[in-house]
């Protein structure tokens, strides 16, 4: 480490091997997931992950807009990832940018490989991810939120999709980067796992790693994903196991809601 220009780089890993926020290299930030906080959406989830706060809503399967994207043999998955203007330190210019378009694309493609889209031809499953507060790892937090929201919406899929980023910071492979580690670290490797099969459906990398480091990072990421998977499942159980939720079909045709 050292300083680049005049800007002071924080010490990312201390002498005791602890990270900038006191975590061990293989430790996740605290994560809390609420399934179904939104009532208008067909399915929804809120994820608080370290200093990230992400809301996801799912609609569908419903009519495809724009129409020309419609496919006669299967449903399509459309995703819109958006960061709120107030989600980062300096005001983010609202609207589409290259980064959010890319993230929307990779998230939609990740879900396309787990949703049973052939069951609903000529329709679209629409995922909206709103990042309310960002602190590195928002694409993973968004993916986790969207995945819980899809399950909440009753959309058939292979499995839930836990996701986490692994990175290289001060020469060490660490799990779940926070903002400083992401900004001043050497590499960032977000991934999403299908726990049922062990397949990865999202894998990106920024920065550099050696081949053995990449192997170590992938192993660490899979372990992290499995931990997040447990939190996701618990969030859905908390919402549905209590029997407090009434499925749409339980409303009587006479129009009397129980």
């Amino acid at each position: 480490m050292g300083s680049v220009g005049a800007k002071e780089i924080p010490e990312l890993i201390g002498a005791d091997g602890r990270r900038i926020d006191g975590r061990r290299p293989d430790e996740l930030r605290p994560i809390r997931i609420v399934a179904g906080p939104l009532h208008r959406a067909d399915g929804s989830a809120f994820v608080e992950w370290g200093d990230n706060k992400v809301m996801a809503a799912v609609y569908g399967p419903r009519e495809v807009h724009p129409r020309h994207l419609q496919q006669n043999t299967k449903a399509i998955v459309q995703c819109k990832y958006n960061m709120a203007a107030f989600s980062v330190d300096e005001r983010k210019r609202p609207g589409l940018d290259r980064r959010s378009q890319e993230i929307s694309k990779v998230i939609a493609e990740a879900f396309e490989s787990v949703v049973f889209s052939e069951e609903y031809p000529r329709t679209s499953v629409d995922i909206y991810i709103e990042v309310l507060q960002a602190n590195a790892g928002t694409r993973c937090a968004g993916l986790v939120a969207a995945s819980v929201a899809l399950a909440d919406a009753g959309i058939p899929m292979v499995d839930l999709l836990p996701a986490v980023a692994v990175g290289k910071v001060a020469g060490r492979i660490v799990l779940d980067l926070k903002k400083e580690e992401d900004n001043y670290g050497e590499a960032d490797l977000p991934m999403a796992l299908v726990p049922q099969s062990g397949r990865l459906v999202l894998l990106q990398m920024e920065g550099h790693m050696t081949r053995p480091e990449l192997g170590e990072a992938l192993d660490l990421g899979v372990i992290g994903c499995r931990k997040i998977y447990d939190v996701m499942k618990q969030a859905l159980r908390d919402r549905y196991a209590a029997g407090s939720v009434v499925s749409g079909a339980a409303f009587s045709a006479a129009g009397v809601a129980p």
Partner: peptide
Amino acid sequence: ALLGHPHIDPQARAISVRALHAV
């Protein structure tokens, strides 16, 4: 593939999941 309660049809030897919040 869904969130719900499993249900076994002994005649068809089929297992299905009745969704709690189904499409």
